[in-house]
Amino acid sequence: MVLDPAETKEMVARYPERRSVVLPLLWRAQERIGYISDEAIGEVAAAAGVPASEVSSVVTFYTMFRREKPPARRLQVCRSLSCAMAGADELVAALREMPGCGEKFSVETVECLAACDRAIAGIYNEGLVGPLNLAGSAKLVRDGGAAGAAAPAGSSGAGAPLEGGGRP
């Protein structure tokens, strides 16, 4: 049993139609065990009232759902325009040269994270990070936790005074 039946029931009840609970329950399963297992797919399908093959199909559509357990430390680096212009490809290449890449930690590329003001932006496990540099990112994937150069992105209130209307 991957999902908590009581919680599943409560989540189903949030929506006017049952099958809307597919994505929320897949997220819940991934939060609980780190990935979407076959068992999880069966449970989601049963809760949402759709065939398991349909849930599997949905899982393959969305890039954030994983069918395998990821390493403990997982850095996803944005490779879209502003971050690429800031050297994302080189950063990723350098990190992938590090020993332990693929086993102890993973470095993946993702498309735009809507954090172009922090290029190079990334997601470390489940938190937005950036601007990333090599030293900080290397420390992050090697040792985990928030590193100096890879400041976790949080509220803009933590930043410098606003120049105009928004986030510096």
Binding site: L81, S82, M85, C116, D117, A119, E163, G164, G165, G166, R167, P168
Partner: peptide, 16 residues
């Protein structure tokens, strides 16, 4: 709110 990034000195959001 304009989001500006790339080769500018102060990338960010500016409400204009």
């Amino acid at each position: 709110i304009c989001s500006i990034s790339g080769h500018v000195r102060r990338p960010g959001n500016y409400e204009l």
